[in-house]
Simulated assay, not measured.
Amino acid sequence: MPADPHATREPTAPADDPGSSWMLAYKHGDERAFDRLVEHYSPQVFALVTRFWGTERGREDLVQEVFLRLVRTRARYEPTARFSTFLYRIVFNLCANQRERERLRPALSIDAPWGGGPDGDAREPAELDAPGPSDRIERDDVVGAVRAAIASLPATQRMALILAKYEELPYAEIAAILNSSEKAIKSMVHRARENLRERLAPFLAEESA
Rank of each mutant, 00 (worst) to 15 (best):
P2C: 03
A3Y: 09
D4T: 02
P5I: 11
T8R: 15
T12M: 13
T12F: 05
P14R: 13
D16Y: 05
D17H: 08
G19D: 08
G19M: 10
G19T: 07
G19F: 01
S21H: 11
S21Q: 12
W22G: 07
W22K: 09
A25C: 05
H28L: 02
A33Y: 06
A33D: 11
A33V: 04
D35A: 14
R36H: 13
V38E: 07
V38D: 01
E39Q: 12
H40E: 14
Q44A: 14
V45W: 04
L48A: 11
R51T: 10
W53A: 09
G54F: 03
E56Q: 14
R57Y: 12
G58M: 03
G58W: 03
G58T: 01
R59E: 13
R69W: 11
L70G: 11
V71D: 09
T73Q: 15
R74E: 10
A75L: 07
Y77S: 05
E78A: 13
A81Y: 12
R82P: 08
S84G: 01
T85G: 06
F86C: 02
L87Q: 03
R89C: 05
N93Q: 11
N93D: 15
L94S: 02
L94D: 01
C95T: 09
A96E: 14
Q98V: 05
R101E: 14
R103T: 07
L104S: 03
R105Q: 13
R105G: 08
P106H: 04
I110N: 07
I110Q: 05
A112T: 02
W114C: 15
G117L: 08
D119N: 05
R123G: 04
R123F: 12
R123P: 01
P125A: 02
D129A: 14
D129Q: 12
D129N: 14
G132Y: 02
S134D: 14
I137E: 14
R139H: 11
R139A: 13
V142D: 11
V142P: 00
V143H: 12
V143C: 09
A145W: 12
R147T: 15
R147E: 09
R147L: 00
S152T: 07
P154W: 07
P154H: 01
R158Y: 07
A160I: 05
K165L: 09
K165V: 10
E167L: 14
L169E: 11
A172M: 03
A176H: 03
I177D: 08
S181P: 01
K183S: 15
A184Y: 06
A184P: 04
I185D: 03
S187P: 02
S187V: 01
V189H: 06
R191C: 06
E194W: 09
N195M: 12
L196I: 15
R197Q: 13
E198F: 12
R199Q: 11
L200T: 05
F203K: 01
L204E: 15
E206I: 08
A209C: 06
